[in-house]
Amino acid sequence: MPFNPPLPDWRGKNVWLVGASSGIGQATAHALHAAGAKVFVSARNAGALAGFVQSHPGAVALALDVTDRPALKAAAQTVLAAGKLDLVMYCAGYYKELRATGFELAEMLRHSEVNYHGALYLLDAVLPALLAQQSGHISLISSVAGYTGLPKSLAYGPTKAALINLAETLYLDLKDSRIGVSLVCPGFVETPLTAQNEFTMPALITPEQAAQEILRGWRQGEFEIHFPKRFTRWMKALRLLPYGARFAAVRKITSL
C-alpha cells in the first residue's frame, strides 16, 4: 500500500514550487511543466524566474524571500486564486559549512530562517486551503544531512533534521484529511549550494536526475523519497548504529 495517493498524471494540475530559481527546485518545475502541470515558481532571484517563465509557456513567477511571511502569504493568495492547489513543494535552502570551533550565531539563525521557518510560513499560507479542499500534496526537501550529526554541518544539519520530523508529523496529522505528504532526502546533487564543497562528493547526480527521482516517488505514492540509493542507503544504515559506532564511523569516513 502506498503512503500517499499516487500522482501519475500532472495534466491540468496546479503546482507551486518555492525555491525554484535553480537546482532541484528548478529542475522539478521543468519536469512538472513538461508533464502538463500549471507551474507557479517562487524564489528571491526574479531574473532567474523570469527566464524560466519565458522558456515555459503558461508558468507563473512569484518572486519572494521565504523569510518574508507577508510576501509568502500574498503569493499563496495568487496561487490559490487560480484554482485547487494540487501540490506545493518547499525547495528553498541555504548552506554554509560551519563547525562548533567557529560558531556564528548569525549563520545558525540564517539557516533556521531559510531552511525551516520558511517552510512554516508556507504551511501557514496554504494549509487552511488544503484542509478546506480535502486534497492536495505537501512536499518538503530535506537532506541526508538531517539523518545524523556530521562535521561542518552544525548550522545546516539541524534544520534538515527539523524538516524530517516536521514531515513525519504532518503525515500522521493529515492522513485522514486526504492530503499527501512527502519528504525528499537527496544525497549530493550538483547545485549552487553543493558547489561550495571542496571535497569529492560521492554518488553526485544532476538536478535533472533528482527531479526524475522525485516525480517517480510521487507517482508511486512514497512518503520518503531518497536518492541516489547507492549512497542514501548507507546514510540510513549509519543512523541505526549505536552512538559509539556511529561517531567512530563518521569520523573515519570524513577524516574529521
Rank of each mutant, 00 (worst) to 15 (best):
M1R: 11
F3N: 10
P5Q: 14
P6V: 13
W10E: 03
K13V: 11
V15Q: 06
V15T: 11
W16D: 08
V18E: 00
V18C: 03
G19W: 04
A20K: 04
A20V: 01
A27P: 08
A31T: 04
A31K: 02
L32A: 00
G36Y: 03
A37E: 02
A43H: 06
R44Y: 02
N45Y: 07
G47F: 09
A48Q: 15
G58H: 06
A59D: 11
A63I: 01
V66Q: 02
V66C: 05
D68N: 13
D68E: 09
K73V: 15
K73S: 15
T78C: 02
A81I: 06
D86M: 04
M89C: 14
Y90M: 02
C91Q: 09
A92F: 07
G93M: 09
G93W: 07
Y94N: 01
Y94D: 06
L98P: 08
L105N: 13
A106S: 14
H111L: 10
S112G: 14
V114K: 05
N115V: 11
G118W: 02
Y121A: 11
L122S: 12
L122P: 08
L123E: 07
V126A: 05
L127A: 03
P128I: 13
L130Q: 04
S135N: 10
S139W: 08
L140D: 03
I141F: 02
S142T: 04
V144I: 11
V144M: 11
A145N: 12
A145P: 09
A145S: 13
G146Q: 03
G149W: 05
I164L: 08
L166H: 02
L166S: 02
T169H: 15
L170F: 06
L174Y: 02
D176F: 02
G180Y: 07
G180D: 14
L183Q: 01
V184W: 04
V184K: 05
P186C: 00
F188M: 00
F188R: 01
P192N: 12
L193D: 03
T194I: 07
Q196W: 07
N197E: 09
E198R: 13
Q209P: 00
E213Q: 14
E213H: 14
P228V: 01
P242Q: 10
R246L: 13
F247D: 15
F247P: 08
A248W: 13
A248C: 08
A249T: 14
K252V: 10
S255C: 11
